[in-house]
Write a protein that binds this DNA or RNA. Sequence first.
DNA 1: GTTCGATGAGTGTATACGCACGTATCGTCG
DNA 2: CGACGATACGTGCGTATACACTCATCGAAC
Lengths: 138, 138
Amino acid sequence: MSETVDLSATRSCPCLAARRQARALTRHFDAYLRPHGLRSTQFSVLAALAQLGPTVRSRLADGLGLERTTLTRSALTLERNGWIETLQTDDARERPLVLTTAGRRALDAALPAWKTALDRLEHMDGAPRTGATHSTRG
Amino acid sequence: MSETVDLSATRSCPCLAARRQARALTRHFDAYLRPHGLRSTQFSVLAALAQLGPTVRSRLADGLGLERTTLTRSALTLERNGWIETLQTDDARERPLVLTTAGRRALDAALPAWKTALDRLEHMDGAPRTGATHSTRG
DNA sequence: GTTCGATGAGTGTATACGCACGTATCGTCG
DNA sequence: CGACGATACGTGCGTATACACTCATCGAAC
């Protein structure tokens, strides 16, 4: 309980507010995903790949709204865990990523936990919202 | 492709949306703060300290909504840059942080850039909002 | 076929983030 | 005083994030 801390100026900065909210949500979701050995970010990459099929890194990063080089590192981790792999194409520049069977299994296994996390979120007071389409605060 | 599980719900995951938004906003603000050698997170810590005065790490982290150990590392960087320093108190456990003169100068110098970044944000279409209290589209 | 711009991608470096775990100190109770 | 829980804090480790820079490849122009 921090009764003295106000930080009103901090709260009025959308960047800081967004970071704060993202941190809180990440902690929340990570806690539910942890038993499955997944993190929020990794979950998002796997889910995106599951829906997109084989996708080159640039496009995947773009779709997820993160820097290409960031995805490069994330992909390394996921590849090391055997959840994704790199395909080969005619164009030697392209290194499309694709979900492996193990990746699909991990994703499926984690999905209920993710849904639970989402559900608990909506039942929380002052639950952070972010333009997601589920109706909070009617 | 077995397609056993419906993943469409993950597209509207508030955690992913929040992270995406935080990344975008951070990139935006960082671009404006870069000439001043500051990052969004560092700016927020300095701004918080400027308003709170000497503050123990735990409480500062709590106020900023981040993990205590995360602040420990951030504080190291800020201390290395001479923007903050650690005070001593009666209680040897406490290590309150306080803004240095240089830190105050850096914060003041960066403030116009921060305001510019905020202004440009509100002029953007589909500008990310996060429950911040400043009046958008006044 | 060589040059050259465009495209896809990796590396170096630095910061951000948090969990698990350990340490030092303080206040209190016996 | 000594034991003990509470408090404030740091470390080890792994992941997340992005900018600056470099590399490899492709397609087209010459």
